Simulated assay, not measured.
Amino acid sequence: MNIPEKIPFLSILIFVTTLYGSYKGIVSNKFIDKYLLSSEGVLFRKQYYRIISSAFVHADWPHLIFNMASFALFAFDFEKEQGILKLLLVYFSSVIGGSIFGLINNQRNPDYQAVGASGGISGLVFASILSSSPFSIILYIPLAIEIPDWVYAYLFLSISYIGMQMKKGNIGHDAHLGGAIVGIIFITLLSYENVGQRYLLALGLSGFNILLICHYFYRKGFNGFDIGRIFKKIKERRISVRQEAIVLDLDKILDQVYKHGQESLSERDRRRLEEISKEI
């Protein structure tokens, strides 16, 4: 194997790009708002790039560190063993799968937003485990604990399910389950012989993942994916926000007129007052 084949170029590129994008997002709300996953952005504004771009921004430093540590733990070795093409297909298909699952899971919430590489990393974790010989993973919590890879996989799914129930912040916990099932499917198609050696684990993880998803939707009361209802809720929210902005602007202008007279209004205030009068 020559030197270039030993260097995980794509893994390094994804790692560095995610660090940079996340740093920009953490220090700038405007930046993160532009690239995060949101129901309004994807479904209403047709900004489909958010399905992938949300994987390159994170909510905070702990979120970023945890995800990048998980990425480094699996991605570099996976690319060296399976190649750049398989990493490309597994990672980004899992990102897309996780994002779509998040949108479906939160279709009743027009304000849904999520960030993070959870879907891609989840798919990568399961693809790595299923395409490799059995190995152990050392966890520092805080003492070093060595556990088999299959135990780690089941713990990963269980913790992700708990995170879905808690729903804290904009972290896309539900993307873990969506990304996991996509990762399992793609690595099975791409490395059938390797996965075939661990087919019992593949079947077990797939079944457990599907069971968690079904149980979650059963408790939640899932009635199908109604995109019309989503559009209606988003439109209602946008109208409500616009009406609030009109009230605030009108109050500000009238307050200025009351204190300083109509002559004190700027040209901009006069235009805004005229716009409001047409909308009321």
Rank of each mutant, 00 (worst) to 15 (best):
G116E: 11
S158D: 00
F92C: 06
A69T: 15
S93P: 02
N105E: 09
K86N: 11
S99I: 14
S99H: 13
G83S: 12
P142E: 10
S93V: 02
F78S: 04
V90Q: 02
D111Y: 05
L88R: 08
M68Y: 04
E81K: 10
I137R: 03
P148V: 05
Y112C: 01
F92G: 05
S136M: 06
F135I: 01
V151E: 08
A114K: 00
G119P: 02
L124C: 04
I145V: 13
E146Y: 01
L103A: 13
N105P: 03
L89W: 07
V115R: 12
V115E: 13
F126H: 07
L139K: 09
I141L: 15
P148Q: 05
V151F: 13
S99Y: 14
S158H: 00
N109A: 07
G98V: 12
P110Y: 03
F74N: 11
V115P: 04
Y152R: 01
F71P: 02
Y152G: 01
L124P: 04
L155D: 09
V151I: 14
I84D: 02
A127E: 00
S128L: 00
I137N: 02
L87E: 04
M68E: 11
L103Y: 11
V151W: 07
Q107R: 10
Y140K: 08
L85T: 14
K80L: 12
D111E: 10
P110T: 02
S70D: 09
F92E: 04
A127Y: 00
I129H: 04
L85E: 13
G119E: 02
L103M: 15
A114Y: 00
Y152N: 01
S70Y: 09
L88F: 14
S132D: 08
I100T: 13
F135H: 06
N105C: 10
L89Q: 06
I145D: 03
Y91S: 06
Y91M: 09
Q113V: 06
S70L: 15
L73N: 13
I121L: 11
G119Q: 03
S118Q: 06
G83Y: 10
F101A: 14
S136R: 06
G123S: 07
F71W: 05
E146V: 11
S133Q: 13
L130Q: 09
F74C: 11
S70H: 11
Y154P: 01
K86P: 04
S128A: 03
S131F: 01
F76N: 03
G102Q: 15
I100W: 15
F76R: 00
N67H: 07
N106L: 08
I104V: 15
N109Q: 08
Y91P: 06
D111M: 07
N105A: 12
S70T: 14
S131Y: 01
V95F: 11
F74A: 11
I121S: 09
P134F: 07
G83L: 11
L87F: 06
V90Y: 05
N67M: 12
I121M: 12
L88Q: 05
A153V: 00
F126E: 03
N105K: 13
N105Q: 13
P142D: 09
S132Q: 10
G123Q: 08
F76G: 01
Y154F: 14
S93C: 10
G120A: 06
Y140E: 07
P110E: 03
M68T: 03
I100Y: 14
F92Q: 05
